[in-house]
């Protein structure tokens, strides 16, 4: 098949960019650990309230400056819906759903997860800046979907 010289140049340039781009995404994901939230832990969606750690949702200190934040999503609320986090804390957020699919987005950060019944999803983030962050549901879950929200307050350590 004949290909015009300019088209070859154009495609070599384009495909070259493509590979550079894929390499950047791949290195960031596999070498630097910037993988999307892909937790493989499963849970019985009807027994969330009895299954640790979701039987006692909230912030748990797990190490020096390290925390776990366990959140239960259900129509149309997050439990807990107010969380205070000390500034500089490295927090692993675990979240699961008791009913339908929900979203878990912390506005202004790159914390963004799908929350699906039967699965735990998880993302780790260090909160470096004080302030108030809005959590909201960004996957349609029913009539009250747009009311489903919670807050994170990042505060200076006492």
């Amino acid at each position: 098949m004949h290909m015009h010289k300019y088209e070859k140049v154009w495609l070599v340039f384009g495909i070259g960019c493509l590979f550079v781009f894929l390499t950047i995404v791949g290195v960031s994901a596999f070498a630097e650990g910037n993988q999307p939230p892909s937790c493989l832990t499963t849970i019985d969606p009807e027994k969330v309230d009895q299954t640790p750690p979701f039987n006692k949702p909230g912030l748990v200190k797990t190490g020096d400056n390290e925390y776990q934040l366990n959140i239960v999503a259900s129509a149309f609320a997050y439990t807990p819906n107010q969380v205070e986090i000390p500034k500089g804390a490295k927090v692993t957020i675990n979240v699961t759903s008791k009913d339908v699919i929900h979203g878990f987005e912390v506005v202004g950060t790159n914390i963004n997860m799908m929350v699906e019944p039967g699965y735990v999803n998880s993302f780790t983030k260090t909160f470096d800046k004080t302030g108030e962050y809005t959590i909201l549901c960004n996957e349609y879950c029913g009539a009250g979907h747009h009311m489903m929200t919670a807050r994170i307050k990042v505060v200076d350590k006492q």
């Binding site: 987005e105 506005v107 809005t134 549901c137 960004n138 349609y140 979907h145 747009h146 929200t149």
Partner: peptide, 19 residues
């Protein structure tokens, strides 16, 4: 880019300054 969700009716998310 500011974080506004898709597929959602009007909401200020409890007058959240971000929203």
């Amino acid at each position: 880019l500011l974080g506004a969700p898709r597929r959602s009716a009007f909401s200020t998310y409890g007058n959240s300054p971000q929203a």
